Amino acid sequence: MQNMTADVGAQIRKGVVEYCALGILSREPMYGWRLSEELVERGMIASIGTLYPVLGRLKDRGLITSYAGESGSGPVRKYYKLTPAGEAELSEFRRQWEPFTRSVQDIVAGDDA
């Protein structure tokens, strides 16, 4: 049974990790390592190696862009930020997320709709 629970968690994370990255980037542009630390800390990804495919998909969809920026403590870093399309996508996700999670909670808790 525990393996099934782990699989559910992995599927849930897989479904929302891109939106979590957009949410973090909506606060401020940041470089990949820092973004990965934020996502690892919250249990959304396992390591930085998991992040780059996510960033690639977001970039391919036009939801983020990257630019070279001074780090203040070393070499120039590649920073990521939301595009207007990314802001719109995140806004739509936020609009749908709360009622969705409320419905899921009601269903799995056994509450009547």
Rank of each mutant, 00 (worst) to 15 (best):
E98G: 14
K14W: 00
E41M: 04
M30V: 11
A10Y: 04
Y67D: 03
R94G: 02
G15W: 06
A85P: 03
G43M: 00
E38M: 12
W33N: 15
R102E: 15
N3V: 13
K14N: 07
I12W: 12
T65S: 07
K78S: 14
A6F: 12
E89T: 12
A46F: 07
E38I: 03
K78E: 13
L51N: 09
Y31E: 08
R27C: 10
D60Q: 14
V16G: 01
K78N: 14
K14V: 08
R61F: 03
Y19N: 03
A21F: 08
V8A: 13
P75K: 12
I24T: 06
V40F: 02
S26V: 12
K81S: 09
V104F: 05
P99F: 01
M30H: 00
A6G: 02
G32K: 11
R42Q: 15
G49W: 02
G62L: 14
R95M: 09
A88C: 12
R95N: 00
V76I: 15
A10K: 05
E28P: 12
S26N: 10
V17E: 08
I64M: 00
Y80P: 00
Y79T: 12
E18L: 08
S26A: 09
T65E: 08
G69E: 09
A46P: 03
G62H: 09
Q11P: 02
A68Q: 10
I48H: 06
V76H: 07
C20G: 11
L90Q: 13
I12G: 14
T83D: 06
R34S: 14
Y80N: 09
G23P: 04
Y80M: 05
V16E: 03
A10L: 00
E38N: 08
D60C: 13
P84Q: 09
R13W: 02
P84T: 02
L51P: 14
S66H: 04
N3P: 11
M4Y: 15
K81C: 04
E87K: 05
G32E: 12
R42W: 02
L55N: 06
T101C: 08
P99C: 01
P75S: 07
P84S: 04
E37A: 00
L25S: 02
R13M: 06
A68V: 13
R13H: 06
V104W: 01
C20M: 04
D7R: 13
G56S: 15
R77D: 12
Y80G: 11
E37T: 05
T101R: 09
N3F: 02
R27T: 14
G56P: 09
L63F: 02
R34K: 15
T101F: 02
F93R: 06
S71F: 06
F100P: 08
C20T: 10
S71I: 03
G15H: 01
A6D: 14
E98K: 14
V76S: 07
E89P: 03
M30L: 01
E92D: 15
L63A: 03
G15E: 14
R61I: 10
E87T: 07
R57N: 05
L82H: 04
L25Q: 01
E87S: 09
